[in-house]
Design a protein around this nucleic acid. Structure first.
Lengths: 329, 329
DNA sequence: CATACTTATGCAAGCGCTTACATGCACTGT
DNA sequence: ACAGTGCATGTAAGCGCTTGCATAAGTATG
């Protein structure tokens, strides 16, 4: 393995100068720079980022903890975080917590000594547990506001309220909410929002579920909804909604005439042959870029931090969701 | 930040002993161990993996380069690699090359100084370029055999040949191959396999495409196939196949009577309301675990490597694909 | 021409941890 | 009683790089 010392020796400069050629080129004379670079790639020198990290006191590594790596919901977020931090010169370690709060804490502990900062996407752990493990460490949470940490979240509530207004306006009164997986924090919130929005407008919300967020769950829930005496349904996500629509088609029921269907999220681009879905779309990509940007900003700060002695107040960014009105309502 | 030196001082032992408590506990007396550990977590000591990496000469980091991060095809592979290397005590850096050969090389260069080894999933770069950037570095490739590096690949050809046999046996003679994205290495190989398998059995292969691997591509290609005078089609993947089936349903054509449909990969679990797809499924999860395991083995070797002085011969693991016969044939 | 300032480079002290080697000590067998 | 053995611990030399400070030119200023 060829080290910077080898390069320096061969180029006839000191180790310090060689180092500066790569780290602070503006401090080095032009010919020296050229010579060092020439020698470096003649020798096939590859900088050892570990040593650099140790000397600099920061690793250039950021972590992202997601509840599910292979989920179309998080995919755009992951990609966006990835390219955002990459363009700031960081590398990203993505870890799957499998939606398990204990894993989240365990992972955070493991990663603390390794990365410069951490993003938690939709964390399920208690705020206390997170605060504990992340104290004094750069953190950004997504879709979860914790007072001590920066966060970015998507305002699904506004979209849901708008959707409820739409349904009421189109004459629906008794509306089903077909909820997502048991224990989902967002699920409870969504139902509450729907109920409030409906009751404020003379409607009524009926909660069904919980169901797995899968197409089959939708298919299987259809007859239950039919018997439930509702004229519209708001499904936890697009997979479930598609399941409902497939089941409806199978028994000859018409959407939206017999049952109006709407969903949060629009995960799949399958909508061919089926009416286009009315859905509340969340800007997950944007959320990812923002989270990445906020984390990079936090990590970069310490160098020149005077005014805010480690106690700056946390920023909370809220992104709007969009109600996309399709043919299913 | 509390360092190991702080812990050692407070516990009244030398730095070396404190270090051994965490790295080689069997070398330290029981009470000493207990005391050090007690002090360590009283002080909230967190080991600095960067320093450890530098001293040990290895980072405990592995890299995985995929052409597309958010792809259902790679998802099981990514998860499997993840958990495999994690269980061996490594952390994983996943980077998206966006299917671009230059990115692959650039990423490899960037990561070389940072990780202990690299997995390339379905790399598109020339073998020479990869060999160049990865010389003398632990590497495993997936779905690409390079003589210098370990690899694991899935034998789609066998499955395709079996599928062709099945189609011939069921009376099909002129069969379409609806290919995937332009420039895909696997695509050419697949068509060749199909053609050979069919011609050996008195059938004929017609190549259509290339098309994007999307549902809509299938939908749009349907009428072209109808005019093409084929009785069966082998699609690049399940998305395309579903598109075909949706289009068939839309015009009242029957699958498999009017057109038999098969595909490589079975990516989506949407198959409800549609006949179940005949598909060649690839064990991507298993491929991932194997790749992870092989890389870990390579990385671990150097310590006690005597016999194989850096020139051990590369291992090539081939995993079988499975032909799953559904109702669409 | 002396002074101050700028620019390019070198020196050496770390960054926090691991580990080969040395030390000290309590046993064991003879 | 003494060398031999093995265990628990300490000493110190790094791992490869960055960076504050010192130094030595060269340039501008009065």
């Amino acid at each position: 393995m060829v080290t910077l010392a080898d390069v320096a020796r061969q180029a006839g400069v000191s180790l310090a100068t060689a180092s500066r050629v790569f780290g602070r080129p503006e401090m080095v004379g032009a010919e020296t720079t050229a010579r060092v670079i020439e020698v470096a790639d003649r020798l096939g020198y590859i900088a050892n980022s570990t040593a650099r990290a140790l000397a600099r006191g920061s690793s250039g590594l950021l972590g992202l903890v997601v509840p599910q790596l292979s989920s179309s919901y998080f995919a755009p977020l992951i990609s966006a975080v990835q390219s955002e931090v990459e363009s700031s010169g960081f590398e990203l370690i993505i870890v799957d917590s499998h939606g398990c709060p204990e894993s989240e804490v365990e992972i955070a502990g493991r990663l603390r000594g390794r990365v410069d900062g951490l993003i938690f996407a939709s964390p399920r752990s208690s705020g206390a547990a997170l605060a504990e493990v992340a104290r004094g460490f750069p953190i950004v949470t997504v879709n979860r506001e914790l007072s001590d940490f920066d966060s970015v979240s998507v305002d699904v509530a506004a979209g849901l309220t708008e959707l409820c207004g739409l349904l009421i306006a189109r004459g629906h009164r008794t509306i089903a909410y077909l909820g997502g997986p048991a224990g989902s924090l967002s699920d409870d919130g969504r139902f509450l929002t729907v109920r409030t929005a409906l009751e404020d407008n003379g409607g009524e919300a009926r909660r069904f579920g919980p169901v797995e967020p899968k197409v089959s769950a939708g298919t299987e829930s259809f007859s239950m909804l039919q018997r439930g005496g509702v004229s519209a349904v708001i499904a936890y996500n697009a997979l479930v909604a598609h399941g409902l629509m497939l089941a409806a088609a199978a028994v000859g029921a018409k959407v939206p005439e017999d049952l109006a269907v709407a969903a949060v999220d629009d995960l799949i681009d399958i909508g061919l042959g089926l009416p286009s879905l009315t859905a509340i779309t969340q800007p997950m990509g944007e959320a990812g870029s923002s989270a990445g940007r906020m984390l990079v900003a936090q990590v970069a700060r310490p160098r020149g931090a005077d005014s805010d002695a480690g106690t700056r107040t946390a920023q909370h960014l809220v992104l709007p969701s969009t109600l996309v009105i399709g043919e299913t309502c």
